[in-house]
Design a protein around this nucleic acid. Sequence first.
DNA 1: CTGTTAGCGCTTTCAG
DNA 2: CTGAAAGCGCTAACAG
Lengths: 333, 333
Amino acid sequence: MPATIRDISKETGLSLATISKYLNGGNVLPENRVKIEAAVKELHYEVNEIARSLVTKKTRTIGVVVYNVECAFNGSFLHYVNSILSEKGYGLLICDSSNSERKEAENIKFLLNKKVDGMIVVPVSSNADFLKPAKHAEVPVVLVDRTMKNADCDCIKIDNRETAMNAVTLLIKNNHKKIAIICSAKEYTGIERYKGYRDALNQAGLSVPASYQKKGIHAMEYGYESMKQLLKLKDRPTAVFMTNYELTLGAVMAVNESPSFNCPEHISLLGFDDMILSHVIQPRMYMVVQPVKEMGEKAVEQLLKRINGNHEDSLEINMKSHLKRGNSIRSLA
Amino acid sequence: MPATIRDISKETGLSLATISKYLNGGNVLPENRVKIEAAVKELHYEVNEIARSLVTKKTRTIGVVVYNVECAFNGSFLHYVNSILSEKGYGLLICDSSNSERKEAENIKFLLNKKVDGMIVVPVSSNADFLKPAKHAEVPVVLVDRTMKNADCDCIKIDNRETAMNAVTLLIKNNHKKIAIICSAKEYTGIERYKGYRDALNQAGLSVPASYQKKGIHAMEYGYESMKQLLKLKDRPTAVFMTNYELTLGAVMAVNESPSFNCPEHISLLGFDDMILSHVIQPRMYMVVQPVKEMGEKAVEQLLKRINGNHEDSLEINMKSHLKRGNSIRSLA
DNA sequence: CTGTTAGCGCTTTCAG
DNA sequence: CTGAAAGCGCTAACAG
């Protein structure tokens, strides 16, 4: 049975109000300060945040929901957000949606019930309905990495389309014409990056067969299978662009398992979301790198603004990503 | 301003108690059920879990604290724990300690303040002091992966020492005599695995120079640096055992960057904690694999027992790990 | 089955 | 600066 403010009131002879005031940074007589401190120590008193929240309607807690904790992007993102937020005195509730829209909607409600002051979500849904409860409860939300129609809230991301276009253009500059893509067709990022790929091809006047365009799901398995198929084609592509980390992993794995194909001699590879990966595999991968840390910082900054009453129009902020050099791309003739 | 039970009381003309009872699965007259349902829908009523918890002293929420969300082991572990727990109707609060003992201690308090019903912790500390507050509050804790002296709570892990010994023995069976190790000397797992390495050497009557024994921290950078140094030795080891995922990554990276050394021709590699890694790098790595999923299941099972009042003596449960074959080990003459 | 009443532990006026 | 009192939203007896 943990000690309550009442116990320390009895112990010190002071009123609840005084204790509470002191505990919240208010001024009390030095002698009372000492008494309270002593009682707190002796009784191992800790505020009951539940009780406090019930009256203040604030929890100094932020909810973060990610589409899949297993994904490296999220692990890294959570790490940064966690360190910034805890530095600012905020607690953090992390929820994993396991790529399920249902779970994601539940997570939002769960966090609302926990009365978080705001949330950061890296979504799986591409439909903003799941955010309605938060909207209704007037709990600010900032989306990260992926946005959606009528989201009506801030979003921190990169310009996926442009980034993908620039990446593919690099391949084209190296005289590749048979360029394949392995992407996810389910989520915002996958779709936008695919558009960027098309943009680059169009701009260069290139066209590629449907068999070069693998549009599936965000999963290592899909990357693996797709690459296997690409390698089997009679008219093999000379370069392949993978639009996220897991797809990149799978694709690399498939190439590595095929003794007759080497990168970059037989096939050039361009990946997405560097997570140490580029260092541990041979050859060093060319990678599109998202500024994960900066995205986390920006998301927190924006959310805190909203929590503190800023009601300006929703912002869509695009961060700068960059291309990390490697030697997985061969320059053709 | 969200609707309260009081609002729906006014709306329906029923008492608070009746509403509350119904909301908690109690029986009420069919007509009243209808009224309540209607009011709930109309007013968008959602229970205030904060208020509920204040009186019930239960939150149906479990806290999970991991030493570092960025580590692949934790990402995977969280994924499994999350899915089991949410299936059972429990909410999940995830906290990251960022490898900091201070942060870890704070996390425990944070979760206690949030009144979690229990917690699962994959610790960074090797001293059980940080668990005292939980002990004091009588909130059950189950440790995972790492344990410590006077932890006095359940722990789900593998037999690290034996596992390491078996792993190194494989190297010995392949006639390796110059076997190096790269391990962390800071945490329980690193220390135990080092002992297993020594056991295997002793048993085979082998002895190795101090320069073969890299005892540092759990970080990719350390694995990288250590491997660089090992490769520079005049009397190079023929095989290296890395005792966790991040060290393995770093070591592989170093080998890959050294054009004059190839695995397994010049150096055999044996890693720990397979996280897809073994598939994406060439050659396929030999790896000690921990049963992450099973560990998560067991941890949850054990915790729920404790939450439901089981007060038997603390258990230390060792799960079975296995060795995943690859071709990163060369058999010497 | 339903309603009344009394809190859970804390903060917050408002006097003093 | 300090204290008395009210109340956050809900549940838990206990009567009725």
